[in-house]
Design a protein around this nucleic acid. Structure first.
Lengths: 133, 133
DNA sequence: TATTGTTATACTCTATAACTATA
DNA sequence: TATAGTTATAGAGTATAACAATA
């Protein structure tokens, strides 16, 4: 009775979310907040729309997230002087620190989740996930 | 800049959903409808609550799904004569056929998705997913 | 006129609580 | 009184459309 790939992936997704939730709560950041911080660490963005597209989010539902992150001093978000319609986005030092701390905690849990696999198996699994996603 | 496991899994999940949606639409069944049919094929259930628990769903949000499947003659859903509070659930022959057809189509797409991996790699990937999910 | 960001609105999904029917 | 199922309601999350500012 072989399960669909979809069911397996959904199961793992649920498990990872359950794992990450206490970590995110401990650091006082939402899932979307963390996703945004991570995206901006990887590359600063010139527009909110580009950021939204890069994380498969709607631009409108990002706005409350950005408001909150900015209010807490975790991101910079200033109008581009050369085109004042766009908002230049980037992490503040505090934002970079927080992203790093959350990611470290998440990595630790992921590592223990996969601890039954050998290092080579873990690498292959990650590699396949990257190719498929 | 290594990505979180969560991001990779979510990406694959989105991709699989996008892949399955046209198939489900073609067969006129919803995602939850297919999940229910698959769960009942694997083992008939004595109560709706047990079915809900087995697929990580709330029992209340299953009811419209069961109504629809029953209306279309895809499931049986009759009160247990020995305790008329509970509904015995199972597939009709039509339901079993439909589940089989949808699953065959989904398997075909999954196979092409993973076609760049060798048979052994595919098996290992599935095995790891099963262990982790 | 076109584009970025924002706000307002509606829609979907899900969960909570109240109700019924059986036991 | 307790349990299975159902219905009604409310809440969260998301998307759509209208709007304001700038080009």
């Amino acid at each position: 009775m072989e399960k669909d790939l979809g069911a397996l992936v959904m199961g793992l997704g649920r498990r990872l979310i359950a794992m990450e939730q206490p970590i995110l709560a401990r650091h006082g950041v939402s899932m979307w907040g963390y996703v945004v911080l991570t995206a901006l660490r990887d590359n600063p963005m010139r527009t909110q729309a580009a950021l939204a597209a890069s994380i498969n989010a709607d631009k409108t539902r990002l706005i409350p997230v950005l408001d909150e992150l900015q209010r807490r001093g975790l991101i910079e978000r200033e109008p581009d002087p050369r085109d004042r319609r766009v908002r230049l986005l980037g992490l503040t030092p505090d934002g970079r620190d927080l992203q790093q701390r959350v990611q470290t905690d998440i990595r630790k849990d992921e590592k223990s989740l996969m601890s039954e696999m050998s290092d080579e198996e873990q690498a292959a699994f990650r590699r396949h996930l990257e190719k498929l996603s």
